[in-house]
Amino acid sequence: MTTYQPSHDQFTPAASGLVFNRIGYGAMQLAGPHVWGPPKDRASALAVLREAIELGINHIDTSDFYGPHITNQIIREALHPYRDGLAIVTKIGFVRGADQSWLPAASPQQLRDAVHDNLRNLGLDVLDVVNLRAPGIAGPDGSALAEPLAALVQLQREGLLRHIGLSNVDAAQVAEAQAITTIVCVQNQYNLAHRGDDAMIDTLAAQGIAYVPFFPLGGFSPLQSDTLNQVAARLQATPMQVALAWLLQRAPNVLVIPGTSSVAHLRENVAAGALRLDAQALTALESLANRL
């Protein structure tokens, strides 16, 4: 693979002024096991973030309910004051229970508190993008979004956030949200094996809206397939590089945010941007859709 420069592969959501390099970094793995508590090696976490910036990443995905608070505090320690052009995208709508559970928290006051928590722990006066993480643990549950979105629009008017996105939503919820406010990005589960959002990706691409797959490499159960391994071996790449390259080739509005706590893996992930999948590889990988 040739050397990959993230700044040479960008997407700008319509009417946003944001310029995303299409390979970003997801900060979830900076927290401890089960996204709870501090990391085992804080110095390594700081090193990963600093290396991400040096590699040309300008999009970090985070949330103050990772840890909770831990990832944002590490991001601030590693990178503040932030470089010009770095977009930090956070999400709100859940909190963590004392038993490490994930609890919906989308009342107007809870959302306001979450925005202020993110601002404080990141050391920011305004958040670039705030994604409303809709209810549903196993996937979108179709809940109405009018009330929480109205709260976010008010916070936007107050100057606490610039742009609004959505996470864990279906097409009907996206349409509902767009009737209320401008949406710059949608973040849902999507990868080689989990392709339920194919139609949504194409619709959003036509509208100039970014689509950001979470769990791009399978999440807590990494993608594993003989077919994936065979394609990777033929292309002299790793299976995870192939999975990321497939996402980047899926549509121009797809932004990938693979997470890692390893500098070596971070470099491998960024290098995947230079990998081009040929017709033979794409045909083989098509067999994995909704099967793993």
Rank of each mutant, 00 (worst) to 15 (best):
L235T: 08
N118V: 07
T181H: 10
S167G: 08
A233T: 15
A271G: 06
V153I: 06
L275A: 05
N168H: 09
S167E: 11
R267T: 04
E286R: 11
A144M: 10
S101K: 01
S287W: 09
A144Q: 13
Q224L: 13
V169I: 15
A27V: 02
Q110K: 12
I209S: 01
L155S: 03
D125S: 15
E268P: 08
A172N: 14
Y25E: 05
A233R: 14
A272L: 03
I137F: 11
A47R: 10
I75A: 03
G93N: 00
W102D: 11
I57D: 00
R276C: 12
A98D: 15
P213N: 06
H34M: 15
A45P: 05
D197H: 11
A134P: 05
D41I: 03
P213E: 04
I23Q: 00
Q236P: 04
P213F: 05
G165L: 04
Q110L: 10
F94G: 06
L277I: 03
T90K: 02
G218M: 07
T2M: 12
F94W: 14
A138P: 08
L244H: 11
R83E: 15
D61A: 08
D41A: 01
V184M: 06
A264S: 10
D41W: 07
T62Y: 09
L235R: 11
S225L: 07
N131D: 12
G165Q: 04
S16N: 00
V89I: 12
A144G: 13
L127Y: 09
E147A: 12
A289I: 05
P148V: 00
W246R: 05
G37E: 06
H34C: 13
A206V: 03
L282E: 09
A106T: 05
G219E: 04
A274C: 03
A47E: 00
A193Y: 13
R291N: 12
V19D: 01
V19F: 01
R195A: 00
I75P: 00
P33K: 01
A31M: 03
H80C: 09
P68N: 08
G56Y: 08
L282K: 12
T12I: 05
A251Q: 11
S63A: 15
Q224H: 15
D99S: 03
Q280Y: 00
A179E: 13
I137W: 14
N121W: 09
Q224I: 14
A171V: 15
D113V: 10
L288P: 11
A87H: 15
H69W: 10
D99E: 08
I164C: 04
G219V: 00
H34R: 14
G24P: 03
E268C: 02
K40S: 13
L122Q: 04
F20Q: 04
G273L: 02
G139C: 05
I209P: 02
M200N: 02
L223E: 08
A150H: 14
